[in-house]
């Protein structure tokens, strides 16, 4: 019991550290990213709609690059939150598929899962949604560098 409580407290502290870390990154801050959930190789990060992120002035749809930036940040957070990885990571490769334009005005939320970690590489899958959680806006797969806990 005491051990469990201790682990919960540690997990909460780790999540708090991760949140502070992510939200202190200048580029994530500039895009107003917010860490909603993190832990155990899973991360959820969202970003509000902003006129500054628009890629198509006629429709007001957000630029694909901004969605990529959200996916990259969320994927990195998922890697850092993996129990076997240290909190240092860099992107090796990221592939994004754009399924549909994000609806203008709506918040975009990315969910990333670090589903496998080797001694030096972490593999992730991620999806991004607007208010319609049944139809993803984009999906991503990627590989990240890892410094593993001794």
């Amino acid at each position: 019991m005491a051990d469990n409580t201790n682990t919960d407290a540690q997990a909460a502290a780790a999540a708090r550290n991760a949140r502070q870390f992510i939200e202190a990154i200048p580029f994530s801050k500039a895009l107003q990213m917010r860490l909603d959930e993190v832990g155990d190789g899973l991360a959820v990060i969202s970003m509000p709609y902003s006129p500054a992120l628009v890629g198509d002035p006629v429709t007001g749809v957000i630029h694909g690059g901004a969605v990529s930036a959200l996916m990259d940040t969320c994927s990195g957070a998922a890697v850092m939150s993996h129990p076997q990885a240290l909190s240092v990571t860099a992107t090796l490769d990221l592939r994004i598929d754009y399924m549909r334009p994000a609806t203008p005005g709506e918040r975009i939320t990315a969910r990333a899962h670090c589903y496998h970690v080797t001694r030096s590489v972490a593999f992730i899958r991620a999806e991004a949604f607007d208010a319609d959680e049944a139809r993803p806006v984009a999906a991503a797969t990627g590989a990240f560098t890892v410094a593993r806990k001794a």
């Binding site: 580029f27 630029h63 690059g65 990529s68 930036a69 959200l70 990259d72 990195g76």
Partner: peptide, 14 residues
């Protein structure tokens, strides 16, 4: 310090 991977991705896509 290093450039954000997302900033690099955005730059390339633009």
């Amino acid at each position: 310090p290093a450039l954000h991977g997302g900033a690099t991705a955005s730059f390339l896509e633009v």
